[in-house]
Simulated scan of single mutants.
Amino acid sequence: MSGRRAVLLSLALLDSSALYFVSYDGVVNNNSLQQEAILTHKGHQYATWYTASRHAVIGRRPVGGSRWETVTLPHRLSVDDSHNVISLGISPQDDTVHVALDTHNTRLHYLRSTPGLAGGGQPWRAIAFGQVRRTLGEVELGAMTYPRFVVTPEGRLQFSYRTGGSGNGVNELAEYSGGTWRKLGAWTSATGSYTGPNGVVSGTRNMYLHGLTYDRRGRLHAAFTWREGNAGVLCARGGLTNHDTGYVYSDDRGRAFHLVRGADGGWTKREVPVAPNHTQRSKIVLGRLESAYLVLPGGWIVAASKASGWTDWRLVFDGAGLRAFGEVSVDASRLGTQGILSVQYQQT
């Protein structure tokens, strides 16, 4: 993929009867809050989904290959809720595959493979994942939502999750190193006062993450929006209490986060001149030359170059032929290393 155009290299059918239902305007197999549903590690690409029987499935293939091996995990989706996604993580330290799934203000369902499975030399079998646990290793997280995995520059696997609930919750981190998980704790607060445009005050809130990503220099970036606990801040009934877009970063692997402001306290905002014509969310990823790719709902792709200061946004791929439902999942790891953008989606 170049910054000028995107060429379709191949299409692969993962499951002709994958589970499909619409909940909260989304589907459980591809949702922007997943991190990750598809990723690449040591010459293999991994993808995950729920099949028609509601079982969780993980597939893998050699990068560039056409044959997917699949394993069916010993867990079935418990409820028709698009929050209850499957998220994958791989630890570079010991090549274990980690799976977090099926949670929305409930205790976690979690599996971890035997060491070395993601190294490629072991048989791809369900027995390697063992039984489902309701804890993160030996760590009890309690009721939680939005499981995400990220990898630090040193190769430590981190786990992001929200405790509490909508309008009154906090984001927390845990870390896997040396074969053991430990909690790092909360890095947001649910308390404090927010005054709505109508003068009504809300005393609790939660942060909804748009993404949590390490860059090549080791800085952890987080983009988000707030949701208030007091619906009275709405100027009209029937809406959501979300407000503002925010950004923070951490240079100590998530122990402390910092606000960013320009000299004038503001940000540069630029509208992408390609309308998504959709209410669902997009995903932005950077290529090897730091071209930015915005993957819109339905699999449409627009791009901008670093040379232009990311101002020359243009359509580089028309997703109409994919027949993709809404939000899609993106393999950012493969784009960064090979310049190939893999997109996982569910057809309508």
Score class of each variant (00 low, 15 high):
223 A>Y: 12
230 N>K: 08
194 Y>N: 08
233 V>Y: 05
172 E>G: 04
219 R>C: 04
340 I>Y: 06
262 G>N: 10
104 H>G: 08
201 V>R: 14
82 S>H: 03
256 A>C: 03
119 G>W: 02
318 D>V: 03
179 G>M: 02
168 N>F: 00
300 W>N: 14
212 L>C: 00
184 L>Q: 15
116 G>C: 09
18 A>Y: 01
18 A>W: 02
156 R>S: 13
9 L>N: 11
114 T>H: 02
300 W>F: 08
114 T>Q: 13
310 W>C: 05
95 D>E: 12
155 G>K: 08
161 Y>L: 04
308 S>Y: 11
78 S>W: 00
40 T>N: 01
15 D>G: 05
168 N>E: 02
202 S>F: 01
279 T>C: 00
106 T>K: 14
143 A>G: 10
232 G>T: 09
329 S>E: 14
340 I>M: 09
9 L>D: 13
66 S>E: 15
136 L>M: 09
185 G>S: 06
85 V>D: 03
341 L>W: 10
130 G>Q: 02
54 R>E: 01
63 V>N: 08
74 P>H: 03
152 T>Q: 00
14 L>Y: 00
282 S>W: 10
223 A>D: 12
204 T>V: 04
328 V>A: 07
194 Y>V: 13
18 A>P: 02
210 H>T: 10
320 A>E: 11
113 S>F: 09
228 E>W: 05
98 H>E: 11
160 S>D: 10
81 D>K: 06
206 N>L: 00
185 G>V: 07
112 R>L: 06
145 T>A: 11
11 L>V: 14
251 D>C: 06
167 G>D: 09
156 R>T: 10
131 Q>Y: 01
331 D>Y: 02
315 L>H: 01
21 F>Y: 15
177 S>R: 15
83 H>E: 01
138 E>V: 09
263 A>P: 10
198 N>K: 11
7 V>W: 05
144 M>A: 10
94 D>N: 15
305 S>L: 05
175 E>V: 15
45 Q>S: 14
53 S>L: 04
262 G>L: 04
310 W>A: 05
72 T>M: 11
228 E>R: 12
91 S>D: 12
254 G>D: 07
59 G>I: 02
269 K>Y: 04
204 T>E: 00
248 V>H: 02
263 A>S: 12
4 R>N: 11
96 T>R: 15
262 G>A: 13
32 S>G: 14
296 L>G: 00
129 F>C: 04
325 F>Y: 15
260 V>Y: 10
194 Y>R: 10
